[in-house]
């Protein structure tokens, strides 16, 4: 029963999100809208954490499994990757490095470089 309730909550959010994105002809990904909807339901207290957990916990625990097939799709683009490896390598290093430096600097500016406690 608890599995049924939590599944219904999650699938309803997904279905409503799909309906809305179709209605508005938006390219915004429906599952993400569903996530936002569910978050709002949780924050407003309409849905309780314990109602959601029975289905949400195993789904989250095994989530990496669900994107393995999509990740394997990379074999269709090996040519593109080998042609553009200098670009990919540059992005691979520069993007996370600049983000880490930027965020580290912003927070250190407000909170100091040492631990406050």
């Amino acid at each position: 029963m608890k599995y049924l309730i939590s599944s219904v909550i999650i699938l309803t959010c997904l279905a409503v999100a799909k309906f809305l994105t179709a209605l508005l002809e938006s390219s915004f990904p429906a599952p993400l809208l569903g996530m936002v909807l569910l978050l709002v339901l949780l924050l407003t207290g309409l849905v309780k954490e314990q109602h959601l957990k029975p289905t949400a916990s195993p789904l989250l625990n095994y989530m990496p499994l669900f994107f393995i097939p999509a990740g394997v799709g990379i074999i269709e683009h090996l040519g593109l990757i080998s042609q553009n490896w200098p670009l990919l390598l540059t992005i691979f290093i520069v993007v996370p490095l600049t983000s880490v430096l930027l965020i580290g600097a912003v927070i250190a500016y407000f909170k100091g470089r040492e631990n406050d406690s």
């Binding site: 599952p31 569903g34 978050l39 959601l52 097939p69």
Partner: peptide
């Protein structure tokens, strides 16, 4: 497996 990714993303609201 790919189909289960969609409800799993909705479930991400919980840790959030």
């Amino acid at each position: 497996l790919s189909w289960l990714l969609e409800p799993a993303i909705v479930a991400l609201a919980l840790p959030l």
